[in-house]
C-alpha cells in the first residue's frame, strides 16, 4: 500500500483517496486499488472528472456520484452498485 500513488486516509467507515496533481494513469490506479480492496464508500479527490475511470468502475460493479466539481478539485463518492 505504501507504493500506491496519491494520499489516502480514513474517516469513520469512509476512505478518502486524493489523486490531485498525479499524472495519468496514476489516479485510476490509486482509486481502483481501493475499489478492489475496501468495501466502500470511497471519496475520491481529483483534478478533473475522470473519463477513463467510469468503464473500469462499471466493470467492477461500482458506481460513482459527482458531489463537487471545480477546476483542480473534483470530488466523487464511489460505492458498490446495488
Amino acid at each position: 500500500m505504501s507504493d500506491l500513488p496519491g494520499k489516502f486516509w480514513r474517516e469513520g467507515s469512509v476512505w478518502h483517496v486524493d489523486t490531485r496533481g498525479l499524472p495519468p494513469p496514476e489516479p485510476m490506479v490509486a482509486i481502483l486499488w481501493h475499489v478492489e480492496n475496501t468495501p466502500g464508500p470511497i471519496i475520491a479527490h481529483m483534478d478533473r472528472d475522470p473519463v477513463h475511470l467510469y468503464p473500469e468502475l462499471a466493470e467492477r460493479g461500482w458506481h460513482g456520484e459527482l458531489v463537487a466539481e471545480a477546476p483542480g478539485d473534483t470530488r466523487l463518492i464511489l460505492r458498490p452498485a446495488r
Binding site: 472528472d49 473519463v51 456520484e65 459527482l66 466523487l76
Partner: peptide, 16 residues
C-alpha cells in the same frame, strides 16, 4: 448527479 450524467457533463470537453 448520477455517474452517467456527471460522465457526460464534466468530461464532455475532453470526450469527442
Amino acid at each position: 448527479m448520477s455517474m452517467a450524467t456527471s460522465f457526460l457533463g464534466g468530461a464532455k470537453d475532453r470526450l469527442l
